[in-house]
């Protein structure tokens, strides 16, 4: 999928994550988390795998993690990407191409 415009998904509530995506000519993943030392790599891996699955190769992805489970990170990244591609509401989440 192509990130055509800025989009955001998720909240800053506990156990959630807020994911912002912006169009760019390269891929950049920024993560802020109070548990960055323990889980930073895991969060980054989850974000990257989700982007790979959605075939997103370019964009600036910012994740503000508030102690979210992996499933929440995946859900928020997917939602933001679908919103950025104007495709939200179509296709099943987690659906591979």
């Amino acid at each position: 999928m192509i990130i055509e415009k800025n989009a955001i998904a998720g909240t800053l509530e506990s156990s959630d994550a807020q994911v912002t995506v912006e169009p760019a000519d390269h891929l950049e993943i920024n993560i802020q988390s109070s548990v960055i030392n323990q889980y930073g790599k895991q969060i980054r891996d989850t974000v990257r795998q989700t982007l790979d699955r959605l075939e997103v190769s370019d964009g600036i992805i910012t994740v503000v993690d508030k102690g979210a489970l992996d499933c929440t990170i995946k859900a928020r990244v997917e939602c933001a990407v679908f919103r950025a591609g104007n495709a939200s509401g179509q296709g099943s989440p987690g659906e591979e191409q």
Partner: peptide, 16 residues
């Protein structure tokens, strides 16, 4: 937030 809730539901059921 209907779209966000669906993504959230799907991944929760797959993982939890």
């Amino acid at each position: 937030q209907k779209d966000a809730a669906r993504f959230s539901l799907y991944h929760a059921l797959q993982e939890i």
